[in-house]
Write a protein that binds this DNA or RNA. Structure first.
Lengths: 350, 350
DNA sequence: CCACCGGCAAAAAACGTTTTAGTCACCGCC
DNA sequence: GGCGGTGACTAAAACGTTTTTTGCCGGTGG
């Protein structure tokens, strides 16, 4: 799709005014270059009156330091990488938002690396980050294989893994507690009176899926009379959710879908069969995607503090970058929460 | 939500091996520093055999040039800014993806600036970009007021506006042709047999909304017997879509909602009233959000080539950066397309 | 009166490149 | 044999900072 061009015009660029150097500021303030630098970086070392004069000059000339030059001298830049599979996926987008917020607060630039499910591109970004002398990176790696990350590691670029566990001696990581998530989901179903519960799950090979199921089992064990079943969908999509709804033989009274797409599909499938949600079957989803509040009967679901993940990742990274010696690696795990909507009876909360 | 810490460990960082400098390469290859530089930047100037030797040394030492130092000398970096209101919004996320792809292809780093609807933060990012000496920026500005962008402009940082028109003499811009979008949406309704059509629109102050309505009018004018009405929603949300469905007095036979949220809500509201989509009323949405394929009856909608927007923006920006003198500003407009789903009868396509 | 010190400020040496202006050897030509 | 040219390389000067070292000056304790 080449697009059409509406209007064009020669670029009449303004005269590109050369930005002020530190030297100019020094001259304007009648001090030496080093004094200016000191005012900017260690104000306590310089006399208040002089500092004042220098600051005036800075303002007058609209001086901004050249980070390249500074980085050259100090050996570190102020940019960090964020590499993730797909910005378009709302889960990762939320991580990105959290990371962007934190980076902004700390004055770092966040360079967005969209690996797009292509391992070679992920690798390409890694080398770009070492080229750029990025000071660290938050990464949601494409595969669990940790050797892929060695290139960064051995170049001395600190890493924080997001949404993937990491042996804590290797570095920091942030993730959501999926066991707890599964537990609160099923606890809620039990609290709403459900006793015959089915987990509609994704592939067993996905860590998140087995964790959520494990949490569900923990919850069920607390109730003598409750039973737990499981159905595994090939893919975690709306379509498979519908299919599973059609295939359910004896209807359970509660269903925990380990993702909101499955849950949405399931609800639709049940509706087609004339089964009412939540009167006949109560449903809990997982993820609190946009879709959860849009489907026919809005979904009770488990919400993950994803922005917090991104934010924490950046902050842990910067701690490592700035503290260096005293930094202790940490695998921080966040607690999910429950969002109550129409697909459960909500007799009890939690 | 503080999160809990599972495991911690002292950071046993690998000895931070100082990266090789160009000087080391020169020594290893037995040539001067400038020769190495020439091999890397203007290979034609140096003897093939020498170049070979240098390249071997580069590989052996795993040398990567220091962009800060290079930028210091050459005066330009290789990073560009992408500032947008919200990465989490799928429209902007798709722009980001396109931009990231293009930036990656051209070897530029894309720094993500999430302005989050806060004008002062947007401004903060602008100054960050000039500090960082970014070579240019793609921006989806928060407000139409162009004076906000002057800070970048007068610092000589080229800009490409995305999703907002811009006088072409001031710079490049990319956008989607919303008039065409409105037209094809309503043309489709007409083609499906609808004659009494209502546009469910957003605030008149939003350029996109008035454009889409204008397109709708154009389409209707081609049919003598067709009539067009308009309802304006306070906000373009699912909730308002439902409300409007409830309030419709004499049902039209076709509805064009200028965004998919409205359309989804409308469908739900109609269903509550027992009105069948598409048998009684045909509905077309706009935007092809995820939601469009999830709602009860999946939505026929207008799809915008958003990734192309992002990609084109970056490419136009880099053209301006690299060509400078010969660059001609351009306001590129992309054509939307129609996605056929269940909410229209699809007697005719397009 | 001297040595020393503390508080400021300035000079100068990096940091890792790119690029300009050579240097040098060699060649062909009158 | 001198002379201009050319091809291949190098020395050295930037680029804009930060940081270490040095220097100055007035005050203070001995």
């Amino acid at each position: 799709m080449p697009g059409r061009t509406a209007v064009t015009a020669r670029g009449v660029d303004a005269i590109p005014v050369r930005p002020a150097r530190i030297q100019d500021v020094a001259a304007a303030a009648g001090v030496s270059v080093s004094t200016v630098s000191n005012v900017l970086n260690r104000p306590e070392r310089v006399n208040a009156r002089t500092a004042e004069r220098v600051r005036d000059a800075v303002a007058a000339l609209d001086y901004v330091p050249h980070p390249g030059a500074a980085g050259l001298r100090t050996g570190h830049t102020s940019s960090i990488g964020l590499v993730l599979p797909d910005v378009t996926n709302s889960f990762y987008a939320r991580i990105a938002r959290g990371a962007a917020d934190a980076a902004y607060d700390h004055g770092y630039a966040l360079v967005l690396c969209h690996s797009g499910d292509a391992p070679e591109r992920e690798q390409g970004y890694f080398t770009m980050l070492v080229e750029q002398r990025a000071v660290g990176a938050v990464v949601v790696p494409l595969s669990a294989d940790p050797t892929r990350l060695t290139r960064l590691r051995e170049r001395g670029i600190p890493l924080v893994l997001a949404d993937r566990a990491m042996p804590a001696q290797d570095g920091c990581s942030v993730s959501v507690d999926d066991i707890a998530g599964g537990r609160i989901a099923v606890q809620h179903l039990l609290g709403c009176g459900a006793r015959d519960i089915v987990v509609v799950n994704g592939e067993r090979s996905i860590r998140q899926c087995t964790d959520r199921y494990q949490g569900a089992r923990q919850a069920v064990r607390t109730r003598r009379e409750a039973r737990l079943g499981q159905v595994v969908a090939e893919e975690m999509t709306v379509a498979y959710g519908m299919e599973i709804a059609r295939g359910l033989d004896d209807l359970p009274d509660g269903v925990f879908c380990t993702n909101d797409f499955l849950a949405a599909g399931l609800c639709r499938g049940l509706a087609e069969r004339g089964v009412k949600v939540p009167e006949d079957v109560q449903v809990v989803g997982y993820g609190d995607l946009d879709i959860a509040s849009f489907v026919g009967t809005t979904l009770t679901t488990v919400r993950q503090p994803v922005e917090d993940l991104g934010r924490a990742a950046v902050e842990m990274l910067l701690d490592e970058v700035e503290a260096r010696a005293e930094h202790a690696h940490e695998a921080r795990v966040f607690a999910p929460g429950l969002v109550l909507r129409d697909s459960t009876l909500s007799l009890a909360a939690g």
